[in-house]
Design a protein around this nucleic acid. Structure first.
Length: 273
DNA sequence: ACCCAGGAAATTC
DNA sequence: GAATTTCATGGG
């Protein structure tokens, strides 16, 4: 195992990106790095100036990690572009300029955002951790991969009880079975027209518009997606009255992340009364 | 005891 | 059909 190093990395802040509610599998270490698992690889990542270091990684996975952190996209340019759309959006973008949209595993994004509904980030992380420890493959360092749809589809509803995910248990099972059987085609969602991709995911019980949008944004890198949850609803009402998802352009998903993060950091600015 | 949490299904009007 | 209630669980 060795280090993969990416030079001249801009517009990346690991805390803003890994701890902003798009992924639930990273935890910050004492030394400021983050440890986590993606694509069945357990690594530690940290920033050293403009060098992004992926530790405990294999050199052959260089492209995988470049893709995961979306290093091919110029976020500085995009931020300039969307900042011109609205002055408040410009403020929000300035507040967390290091957010990037990760390219997570589609099935993992699907499951974690099913778990996210009517839930909070701290508890989501706990349920996801128990899901991986219960049904995911154990990795050499003792951590766990995200479970496969095949494994999850083979279980019975009662097997999900230890996750303490409540009413979401049957949603997870339905997602696993439809993905494993091919009834829901995740690969199709990468390139299909947006409404069709969304409809494909909504064939799953427990997947509505918002969970579908999050899955498309964080699992299929459909950055035109603009998920609206309770925080975004408040922000839209308070800061962008009259505007809709379509007004935020082809990079709406990135704008959405700036707004979501800004709203959570400034609850008084968006909460009514 | 009550309210809320990166919602969606089930029920009721 | 649109509006309201319910759904588990845990923390404040």
């Amino acid at each position: 195992m060795s280090k993969i190093i990416f030079e001249n990395v801009h517009d990346l802040d690991l805390a803003q990106t890994l701890d902003c509610g798009q992924s639930f599998r990273w935890s910050e270490r004492e030394d400021g790095g983050f440890s986590g698992v993606a694509f069945g690889r357990s690594v530690v990542v940290y920033l050293d100036g403009e060098r992004l270091v992926i530790d405990n990684a294999r050199e052959e996975d260089r492209e995988l990690w470049s893709s995961y952190f979306d290093l091919g996209l110029d976020y500085g340019r995009i931020r300039e572009s969307i900042s011109r759309l609205h002055p408040v959006l410009s403020e929000a973008a300035k507040y967390a300029p290091g957010i990037r949209i990760l390219r997570q595993e589609p099935y993992e994004a699907l499951c974690t955002f099913i778990i996210s509904q009517n839930n909070n980030i701290k508890r989501i992380k706990g349920i996801v951790a128990r899901l991986c420890e219960s049904f995911g493959e154990e990795l050499p360092d003792g951590s766990y991969a995200f479970p496969t749809a095949e494994r999850m589809a083979s279980l019975e509803p009662d097997d999900y009880a230890p996750l303490r995910a409540g009413f979401r248990n049957r949603y997870l099972l339905d997602a696993a079975r439809k993905v494993y059987s091919g009834e829901v085609d995740l690969a199709y969602c990468f390139d299909a027209p947006y409404p069709d991709a969304r409809a494909e995911l909504m064939k799953i019980t427990g997947v509505g518009v918002k969970v579908a949008d999050c899955t498309l944004l964080f699992g299929m890198h459909r950055i035109e997606a603009f998920p609206i949850d309770v925080w975004m609803r408040r922000a839209m009402d308070a800061l962008f009255p009259g505007m809709t998802a379509g007004d935020f352009g082809e990079y709406a998903g990135i704008a959405q992340q700036y707004i979501f993060h800004y709203s959570r950091m400034h609850p008084e600015a968006v909460k009514k009364e």
